[in-house]
Design a protein around this nucleic acid. Structure first.
Length: 112
DNA sequence: GTGATGACAAAGT
DNA sequence: GACTTTGCCATCA
């Protein structure tokens, strides 16, 4: 890392890394917070590349519906849900329960 | 070096 | 109200 890359993906990684345990965030909110025009698409791509990294708690990032869309990209399909439940997040049928209460908004948490 | 693919979301019809 | 189409960067083969 001699060269600091200010790529869009790295921006997403930094925000995702700021997500506290027991909380979940959506792609669109992260994109909005970073000001990405591509919106959630960019975040989704970043998560795909995040698989190569290890400091990115991608299991805390879910889609707008609170659905574990990326669970299939983890080591095992149940790994994502298992990690979330281990942090206190109840997940049923790949759906985060009380998603609105577990929702973590960077603009409210970090921006304030 | 080129081509295709990939973890979403909002607007339009 | 539901379905379809568009937007876009980085990585893999």
């Amino acid at each position: 890392m001699s060269k600091e890359k200010a790529n869009y993906f790295d921006l997403v990684y930094q925000v995702v890394r700021e997500i506290p345990p027991g909380r979940v965030c959506s792609y669109g909110v992260i994109a909005n917070y970073l000001g990405l025009k591509s919106g959630a698409r960019m975040v989704g791509y970043a998560m795909n590349a995040a698989h190569t990294l290890r400091d990115v708690p991608a299991h805390r990032v879910v889609n707008r519906q609170g659905l574990l869309t990326g669970k299939h990209h983890f080591e095992t399909v149940d790994r994502m849900q298992e990690l979330l439940e281990a942090e206190g997040v109840r997940v049923v049928n790949d759906q985060v329960q009380e998603f609105e209460k577990r929702f973590w908004d960077p603009e409210k948490e970090l921006g304030f």
